[in-house]
Design a protein around this nucleic acid. Structure first.
Lengths: 196, 196
DNA sequence: CCTACCGATCGGTAGG
DNA sequence: CCTACCGATCGGTAGG
């Protein structure tokens, strides 16, 4: 009693999740060990289990944090009073900023979600499919409104989302251009490619 | 002596490599086990080592097969007598076709190369960097020639290469559109995004 | 939060 | 190509 560190469990768990994200990027989920995580956290492996149930929980906490942000954003953008092309541009800008700001968890959720255990795996998969469908609907609407070239909407969504995933390499490199410049470049290429 | 299967070692090894690619996609390199590979190949785990030195060899054979194809292609395209934008379009079409035709090894080399062991890891990393630099030079030339909008060439390369990586999802899905249609859609969006 | 430990599984080898 | 086996490492638990 009367310990100096009155750090609440939430922040301790957040700290562990942050370290877990870095480790999962570096090694991959399967290759990352709980002993390795314990080491960077600064405790023994067994002690991790006072903060989390198991290794899988680390992954699904990371993945659903990201998935929920995506869901909320597309919901709010759909409701905005602007042209379809503008909505798509806003969504793309959100994706870029999200990648720049929350790089580690976004990257993990993108690359490692297949290691999610059930029922989280199915759940995540469904959320992902639903998100892409809503994104594709925006593009289809843009084509009907004559704002966007005729193209396969599903393919366009794949291209855009994966293109943004490429920011990973930018993030790793010496970062010659700023986040804002990066965003503008991506918008020029991707929105330029859509526009009629 | 006089055995029925006179199958040479090369084709046997190729068969193992093919099964390994599928397994690495499904489980990831680290999570895929040699026992699991042996099972799909139809032999005991220990017998695999008559065809390969170790698990790492499987990965670097896959990765360098892909890397070499890329290298040869960009070399031959650079020498062609056409406009820079046409060269880029040809390169993009090659990437799409490559992904459609050799999906499994391209996907593995894209996602799992970080598990390569030295000296293969450094070697692969260097080849990858060199390839992107040559691709970026094409884009820079296109900007100077006034065929391409002003943009950061390195960013454009990242976007394009990752966008094409998105074909993965197309490959997994029910493949509603054909490979050719896919190619045309990608060219419309990406080349459309570059063009001035 | 730690020490001590468990059963399972891994990549790989010996020897035939 | 197989049987038999090795040391190492894994995720996780008991008990304090």
């Amino acid at each position: 009693m009367g310990r100096i560190k009155t750090i609440d469990n939430t922040s301790r768990k957040d700290f562990i999740l942050k370290k877990a994200s870095s480790l999962f990027i570096e090694k991959g989920f399967k290759a990352a060990s709980m002993r390795g995580l314990a080491e960077v956290v600064g405790i023994e492996a067994a002690s991790l289990y006072n903060h989390i149930k198991n290794k899988n929980e680390l992954l699904h906490e990371i993945c659903f944090r990201v998935a929920n942000r995506f869901h909320e954003k597309i919901e709010s953008i759909e409701a905005e009073p602007c042209s379809t092309l503008e909505k798509i541009e806003k969504l793309l800008r959100f994706h870029v900023q999200n990648m720049v700001l929350h790089f580690e968890e976004v990257y993990v959720s993108d690359r490692e979600w297949k290691y999610l255990s059930e029922p989280y795996l199915s759940n995540f998969h469904n959320q992902r499919k639903a998100y892409r469908k809503r994104f594709a609907s925006l593009i289809e609407k843009g084509i009907l409104d004559n704002e966007i070239k005729k193209m396969d909407a599903a393919t366009a969504v794949l291209i855009m989302l994966h293109a943004i995933g490429g920011i990973e390499s930018w993030h790793r490199s010496k970062q010659k251009i700023s986040g804002k410049e990066l965003e503008e470049n991506i918008i020029v290429i991707l929105v330029g490619g859509l526009k009629k």
